[in-house]
Design a protein around this nucleic acid. Structure first.
Lengths: 352, 352
DNA sequence: TTGAAAGCGCTAACAT
DNA sequence: ATGTTAGCGCTTTCAA
């Protein structure tokens, strides 16, 4: 490996000059800059990032910790984050926690140890522990799911200023879920059920809460019908089976509000296996749009989230905070952004 | 930030002992190990990964450079890589090159500078430059798309031993594409067209080659009908439009072989816009399965790749090579694995 | 403007 | 078995 000393010798200058020349320090003689550049090219010199990071105590890398790479929502978020990061000179390292708390914890530890410049995370649950990151002074933006109070340095102690510890970008989940359910009711379905994620996932709770709120506000009384499963295709299938196979026909839903897109595919499996027809025997609305939603039969009605925008905003807030932490900008006030969702009516929610 | 010296003081030992204790060095008194552990816990010590990497000249991190996070094929590959990596104590950093050569180059540079333990890459084109990685001795496994000869240290020079420079895990693309096209012909479609990726993408060429081979072997002569576009939904839509809108009806395909799944969604858009019905007016086969494929109407016939397995094998080969490079195992012979594809017949390819 | 040298936090070779 | 110390390759004072 060719190092800075080799370049210095080749260019006939000191290593300090090489460092300054390569980092565009203004105080160095332009002629020397050229000589150094050429020498570096000739030798194929590539600065050792690790050494640089150790010295600078910082990196040009952002970590994006998401719950599931195969969920189109998160890939859209990823795009937004990447585009903003790239414009600002950062690389994005994507960490797929895969809905597993241990995997998430591992990535958070790696992020801390490798001293990334900042972290954007969609926490598995409100209990996800980011206290070390906060303590290490690594800027953090939380997306998609809220985080509970951050633990303080001593056990059992929480930081009263936890809210100020990080920015967040969320979506109006409760409202979107309520809108979806009201839409189902308005379309003439009488017993909408709700298929949501696990108890520890905040988004699962919010979407359920919206569903319940809609039922509560309905003119006639409607019995809540709820099933849970992991936020994946298999989870949706099992949960749908649970609801659809209820012993009492009166307990079987005639419509389904599904809390995320991967689950919806599983719900569709269960529906088919039972010979049910969406739009005829069963109404359906899904929280989250997906590329395939317009192409299935009937086309899926969804609550669309501004996924790309969430990624963009999260990255913008993070970059601003990194800059501020480096003293290269004003300290922005803590942001808690709430973006809105859209009901996209296609065919699955309409009675044929 | 609490560092190793602080722990040493707290535990009343030297920093060397702390280092050894925390790294499970066998030669250290178990009683001291406990003392050190406790001291470290008490202080909330977290080793500085950067400093460690600088000293050790290595990392516990693998980089996985893929062309498109939103393609389900790559997310399945990612899962395979992650599972193997985790079992072997590595973290995976996912780098989304997004089909852009510059972005890919940036990530490769980051991987080199941050000295990741190894890289798995699905190269944008055969021209992707991995010479620096090879020169830096970073083990590399190539997946999905082949890489051309690796450039040598001097311009214009190629390394004759380039084939031995890295392992690869690919899929029988040509054969799969040929099978798909033959299936279309056998199902009674008479003018199958091919929608493939850009000229510089090797998989686009391979899939086209398979298509052409099938036409060449057909009993009656069949005119090739080919359109290209970026490997995305919008690319598929534009390419399909090109074929479907041919001035001469005789030049319009009555079936389509589509080279990847994201493109297929775009093709479906174009098909709908023209009021065509898949399975009736138009046969369709897609290279690559996708979670939504069984759920669209009619269900999509696909060439399924063992995506998860590709990721697993790539990671296994990489880990073995990293071990070997560290002297912790035998040097494996260069592997060039070729996995097989499966034709999954659903409804889209059958004449109703 | 340039160079010499200190040190980022850690591991490992060497000394005890 | 434990401690002392020399670096890993770089950036950045400090001195010239």
């Amino acid at each position: 490996m060719v190092k800075i000393g080799d370049v210095a010798r080749e260019a006939g200058v000191s290593i300090a000059t090489v460092s300054r020349a390569l980092n565009n320090h203004p105080t160095v003689n332009p002629e020397l800059v050229d000589r150094v550049r050429e020498a570096a090219d000739r030798l194929g010199y590539r600065p050792n990032g690790i050494a640089r990071n150790l010295r600078r105590q910082s990196t040009d890398v952002l970590a994006l910790v998401i719950s599931d790479v195969s969920n189109p929502f998160f890939t859209a978020v990823t795009r937004g984050v990447e585009d903003v990061a790239q414009r600002n000179g950062y690389s994005v390292l994507l960490c797929n926690a895969d809905e597993q708390p241990e995997k998430e914890a591992t990535y958070l530890r790696v992020a801390e140890q490798e001293q990334v410049a900042g972290v954007i995370i969609s926490p598995h649950s409100a209990g996800t522990d980011v206290s070390r990151l906060v303590a290490a002074g690594i800027p953090l933006t939380v997306i998609d799911r809220p985080l509970g109070p951050v633990a303080g340095p001593r056990e059992g102690e929480t930081r009263p200023d936890a809210r100020g510890a990080f920015d967040s970008v969320m979506v109006e989940s409760v409202g979107g879920a309520r809108l979806a359910t009201e839409h189902l009711l308005a379309a003439g379905w009488v017993r909408p059920g709700c298929i949501t994620g696990p108890l520890d996932a905040a988004t699962a709770e919010q979407r359920l809460a919206g569903y319940l709120a809609a039922l509560g506000a309905a003119p006639r009384e409607v019995q809540p019908l709820v099933a849970r499963g992991p936020f994946r295709q298999a989870g949706g299938r099992a949960a749908a089976a649970e609801l659809l196979d209820a012993a009492e026909p009166a307990d079987r839903p005639d419509a389904l509000f599904v809390a995320n897109a991967p689950m919806a595919l599983g719900v569709l499996e269960a529906v088919r296996e039972r010979g049910l027809r969406v739009g005829i025997d069963l109404g359906m609305v899904v929280f989250d749009d997906a590329p395939w939603a317009p192409f299935i039969e009937p086309a899926m009605t969804v609550i669309a989230q501004p996924a790309y925008r969430i990624g963009e905003r999260a990255a913008e807030l993070l970059v601003a905070r990194i800059r501020a932490a480096a003293g290269a900008g004003p300290v922005p006030p803590t942001a808690q952004e709430l973006l809105t969702t859209d009901l996209v009516v296609r065919a699955s929610s309409l009675r044929a």
